[in-house]
Design a protein around this nucleic acid. Structure first.
Lengths: 350, 350
DNA sequence: GTTTAGCACTCGTTTAGATAGAGTGCTAAC
DNA sequence: GTTAGCACTCTATCTAAACGAGTGCTAAAC
């Protein structure tokens, strides 16, 4: 096995040209094509020799003897790590993105939804987004509201204007006055705190403090807990699922079905994305690098977004291994920057 | 053109046999197949004659000269209206349905979601459901809650335990006391009423009545309106989208893409279903009978569900024209009955 | 030593023609 | 009215041949 450093300048140029061409055409690329279409000033024979080397090193492969070469996962990896030149987005693409993001939406979920949508239409692949975990934002308000004699509604408003609520059934009746006292007690003790740091006082303590039946307090706290738990779950959004079908690698119906079925299982996709959130910054998973056996012909480009220095969610795009990495990466980076800015505005106090 | 009444007993039997067979095999059915596989006691030649008649009358067609016959839309229509024998569900299917529906979910949306899911797995087609319009249920509670100096949260709880909320920004600061008065005023005036009958009092009137700045009242009422509007919108749920791909009529990738794209446009599907909600009871739209050009090879079986006598939502299944109507219809009827019963429990006062 | 032209060879793809088979309509007999 | 028989039609499948893109190797040129 030869070291990557030993890839000569020329080999790298040839590899890049080959991958660029393959990304465009989806057809195995021959030596003649490379020497003709792209001005390297080399004959096809020379390129043939170099390609034989590249194949031996594992960067490219031959589908069969008399076909051109196709990049391997290792080839793509090298391409993404060293050869890619970041594309600048077209002016109208930038405009599209900006106008979509800068609509001054007041809900963070809507913002993320929109961002995911735009990134899928611009790249032409499938995009997904994980709405933010709100556990790192502040709790703005807690309120307990009576619905009828035996049911109350617990509501919290988090930073980002996201509202979570939960209806709980009490085992004994409760007066409006009691509820009010409980409500303002919780409001006073909890609002303004970072959600994940919140320690809910014990039901007994509260009960003594404000003279409300402990059973009732217990139930309400349970509802509150559900609300707080709700801030941990983030929703998955998908856009442009059918974009996959535009690419020849999905011309096999069986494969299409497999992938679409996989995509409709939100839990799997969530797990897949969450796992990439550990490292921050943009990440590219090429082919078999991702965990899912069924998606070995796909690549995943993901990035976390956040507020200040804390990542709260992630989004990314899914496409065939032969994807236009340059374009995808540049679009993602740009959108991520905008999201970070906007979410800062929404999630932190204005 | 011959009248439908003139279809002889024997022609009807042949038509039914043909459609039954075609539904199973998806292959054009020949005269020999009919005479052999199914005991009509007639030779293929006789059946050929009858089939020629049926073709002339428009119930069946020939894809090409030397192929068997295939039911036309008209044929399916006659089949559904007159020939179908309602299938009884298998015992384990009934069990599946019952245990899914009778989980005693407390939110109507979750119930509908589950029902839609189960109907898609049982039939093997794609199912969709429109969550109920809640405008005909009572408003249980209205509450106005202060989030910070300049923002308040308006919350309503409807019958069925569905909570809608809206955050509004005030143009002037507001005291907690004012909010409280406004909140209890609205609660007193509006709660207990059927939502669609609610007439919101004018801001001026309320302002005079409880001595709160009219600008503030105005803003809050706007939020309230958003909440009430929210009860009119029903959500669309889809299940088993990829089931479509199991059927040979969707072996063409282009068609698959078209249909999937159509399905991902929720507004179009909503409109499609809503239009069938006008008539109550189970409805079957066969082939070109539906409005959407792209879905001319599909059939739609829909039914409204409701509480008591008022329909509040709809659900249904989408499959190829060659679908197993008997099975679908029996499953749908059964589930509809269960939903009606359950939703009555959830939506009306207990 | 590197590059290139030339050539034989491989192997998948396309094309055309032949074949098989399913199904029909019609006629004549039952 | 029903059925057996037969000629005919048309599609789907199979086969073989031609095609062509691309390679590796060798020997000559730079």
């Amino acid at each position: 096995m030869v070291w990557e450093d030993e890839l000569s300048e020329r080999k790298m140029r040839i590899l890049k040209t080959l991958i660029d061409d393959y990304i465009q055409t989806a057809q195995p690329v021959g030596s003649r094509t490379i020497s003709k279409k792209h001005e390297l000033g080399l004959s096809s024979a020379t390129i043939r020799n170099e390609m034989a080397d590249l194949e031996e090193m594992g960067y490219i492969t031959q589908p069969h003897t008399s076909a051109g070469r196709v990049p391997s996962d290792k080839g793509y990896r090298f391409y993404v790590d060293h050869l890619i030149q970041v594309e600048t987005l077209a002016r109208d693409e930038i405009k599209k993105i900006r106008s979509a993001i800068e609509l001054r939406l007041n809900e963070i979920d809507a913002l993320i939804n929109r961002a995911s949508d735009i990134v899928s239409t611009i790249t032409g692949y499938t995009s997904f987004a994980l709405t933010p975990m709100l556990t790192k934002t502040v709790l703005r308000t807690v309120q307990v509201v009576q619905v009828d004699e035996k049911r109350v509604l617990v509501i919290i408003v988090t930073g980002g204007g996201v509202v979570k609520n939960s209806i709980v059934r009490l085992n004994t009746e409760c007066t409006a006055d009691n509820m009010m006292r409980l409500s303002s007690f919780l409001e006073e003790k909890l609002s303004g705190k970072i959600i994940e740091n919140i320690q809910i006082p014990s039901a007994d303590f509260i009960s003594r403090e404000i003279k409300v039946d402990p059973g009732i307090v217990e139930c309400v706290l349970e509802g509150l807990n559900v609300c707080l738990k709700g801030t941990e779950q983030s929703d998955l959004m998908l856009h442009g699922t059918t974009n996959l079908l535009n690419h020849p690698e999905f011309s096999d119906l069986l494969k299409v079905k497999e992938v679409l079925e996989l995509l409709s299982d939100k839990d799997i996709i969530k797990a897949l994305i969450s796992s990439t959130m550990i490292k921050s910054g943009l990440q590219v998973q090429i082919g078999k690098e991702n965990q899912l056996g069924l998606m070995q012909d796909c690549s995943l480009v993901t990035t976390a977004y956040g507020v200040g220095n804390t990542d709260v969610g992630a989004f990314g795009i899914l496409g065939p291994t032969r994807m236009s990495y340059a374009k995808v990466i540049s679009a993602m980076k740009y959108i991520q920057k905008l999201i970070n800015r906007e979410s800062l505005r929404i999630l932190s106090e204005e």
